Computed example of a mutant assay.
Amino acid sequence: MDTFFISHGSPRLLISDKPARHFLESWKSKHLQVTPKAILVISAHWETTEPAVNIINGVNDTIYDFYNFPKHLYELKYPAPGAPELAKRVKELLQEAGYNSVEEDKSRGLDHGAWVPLILMYPEANIPVCQLSVQSHRDGTYHYNIGKALAPLRDEGVLIFGSGSATHNLRLLDHDNVVTPSWAVEFDNWLTESLLNGRYTHTSLSMILFLIQLP
């Protein structure tokens, strides 16, 4: 099973006619034909001091962790089943790798970093999903080792994807302009070059997913 970084953009993606939406809608037909056993989402929208997994028995709640968007977006639901077995497996792998303080959150549902792309990728909401939090205050070595610890999940039929955006400044975005701002292009190019050349100094969620795929 491959791993991916999904740049989900703003929640408006669900009501827009953007290339990213069409990409996610064609996910099963063009990009990953194999159905995952379960899905682990590492969302930039869940930050904790120590790693945490949500262990949900039953249906995941839909978290609306965004503000001042169209009312319709707050009425959407993504009732995917929880993945408690996967969550416990994630905790086990992290603890084996030396991350002794892995918290269990038994009430947190899916934030929009998870359900916004998933509602387009797997609209049936029938694949178990759990989330792993991020520690944005930690360095590259810390996240490198998280990637190494989670790598065995690829051989267990688990789809792992990181969710967020390489850049995130919604106030500077012009939603009517199809041209990507120069500052976003420059940073994206820098991030790509840094990852490909092994400069893991940037604590980026995309870095975790890149490292999981290393041999």
Results as ranks from 00 to 15, higher is better:
I15H: 04
Y142M: 12
G109C: 12
D155W: 12
A184H: 13
R89H: 06
F5Q: 03
L214C: 09
P84Q: 09
N197C: 01
V90N: 07
A184N: 12
W46P: 09
R89A: 05
E92R: 00
S136C: 03
G164F: 00
T35Y: 10
T48M: 11
A149E: 03
K88Y: 07
S165D: 13
D176A: 04
Y144H: 07
P117Q: 09
I208F: 01
H112L: 06
V90I: 02
L132P: 11
S10T: 11
E104G: 12
L94G: 11
L86S: 07
R21M: 05
P36N: 10
S194M: 13
L94K: 03
I127S: 07
M1K: 06
G162V: 05
Q135N: 15
Y144W: 06
S16N: 03
L153A: 07
T167W: 01
G113S: 12
M207A: 13
H168L: 07
L86D: 02
P81R: 12
Q213H: 15
V129N: 14
L153R: 07
L93D: 10
I146F: 01
N100T: 12
H143Y: 13
P84T: 05
M1V: 05
E104N: 14
P181I: 11
A20K: 08
A184C: 15
A125N: 13
N57D: 11
A20W: 07
S43V: 04
P215N: 15
I6L: 09
N57Q: 06
L209K: 08
L170N: 14
N189T: 08
A166G: 06
S16V: 04
S101Q: 14
L209R: 05
L118E: 09
N68A: 13
D105S: 15
F4Y: 14
H72N: 04
L211W: 08
G157L: 08
L173Q: 15
N126L: 04
Y200F: 10
T141K: 14
M121P: 02
P19T: 04
F23H: 00
G98C: 06
V59H: 02
T49M: 11
E92K: 00
P79H: 05
K28M: 12
H31N: 09
H22V: 01
S107Y: 09
P79Q: 07
F5M: 04
P84N: 10
A97T: 03
L93I: 09
K18A: 04
L205Y: 07
A149W: 05
